[in-house]
């Protein structure tokens, strides 16, 4: 019985990655620390989707899809601790000085169709699309999705190598280094969509600890013509940012549209 429930929860995992209005849960990677010292260190990271920040109350995110880019730009192997019903956890060993980018990137297709009067959802690749809809399925619609969920940690002095944009989907490019942000000093970032500045993009910026306050505490910001946005925090702590946009549909008649999303966790430290 327990096994069956776990299997169901795992099957639901990829859906948690999508930024859709139907599933507005926040998706986050929360590191145990972002600014560290020593010759070597370790951060442990929780991966979950939830409404409350940063509370485990909805779904885990799949830790086995996480990629970590090290200070030299090379991938770093994570040590997966496991996945519960509400969150996954993994360790990231830090053996080099510099900045690490921890990301969960989802790049693929999402489909919906009607079967026996019910709306069904599907996820997969372009190659798998032909078999996506079972016999009797109707109203099939597919869109291309790119979702990036990420956070950053630095051992020793920050560097920029891991922060280079990939040119795919929505990305956050630091003007202020993401591990050099403190309360009271504005932190500037640029959003790129497929490598181009994402102008007039709505960005949600929320302080963690939502459970302990009555106000939602969510700031809605908009990027300027260069895709720039400025974040200012009055209190230290972990903050969540989220943005999503419709992209240019690919040149593929079978695919109706494109959507990309970005969510990130940033820590503002006390001065």
């Amino acid at each position: 019985m327990t096994l069956k429930i776990r299997a169901l929860a795992l099957a639901a995992l990829p859906l948690a990655l999508l930024a859709t209005s139907a599933d507005a849960h926040r998706r986050w990677l929360l590191p145990s620390a972002t600014v560290l010292s020593g010759d070597t260190e370790l951060v442990t990271v929780d991966a979950a989707s939830s409404n409350q920040l940063f509370v485990f109350e909805h779904r885990p995110l799949p830790a086995d899809n996480v990629t970590v880019t090290g200070p030299d730009g090379q991938p770093v192997a994570t040590k997966i601790i496991g996945s519960g019903d509400y969150r996954s956890a993994f360790d990231v060993p830090l053996t080099q000085q510099g900045t690490y980018r921890i990301a969960l990137v989802n790049d693929g297709l999402m489909g919906t169709y009607m079967l026996d009067g019910e709306r069904k959802r599907w996820r997969g690749t372009r190659a798998e699309m032909a078999n996506a809809v079972p016999a009797g399925g109707t109203e099939a619609r597919f869109i291309q999705t790119n979702g990036r969920i990420e956070t950053f940690v630095t051992l020793g002095a920050p560097n920029e190598t891991a922060l280079q944009p990939t040119g795919q989907g929505l990305e956050l490019v630091p003007v202020t280094h993401p591990n050099d942000i403190v309360v009271g000093e504005p932190a500037r970032f640029q959003f790129l969509s497929d490598g181009q500045p994402a102008a007039n993009l709505k960005v949600e910026f929320v302080e963690g600890g939502t459970r302990y306050r009555d106000a939602a505490g969510s700031q809605e910001l908009t990027t300027d013509a260069e895709g720039m946005v400025e974040l200012t925090a009055e209190r230290p702590g972990y903050y969540y940012i989220e943005a999503g946009m419709e992209g240019t549909p690919p040149a593929d008649d079978a695919i109706a549209g494109s959507r990309s999303s970005y969510t990130g966790v940033l820590e503002f430290l006390p001065l």
Binding site: V35, S37, G38, D39, P270
Partner: peptide
């Protein structure tokens, strides 16, 4: 190993 906590001197560390 004592260097692990140097970052707690936040002002100096930065």
């Amino acid at each position: 190993e004592g260097e692990k906590w140097l970052a707690d001197l936040r002002g100096w560390w930065r």
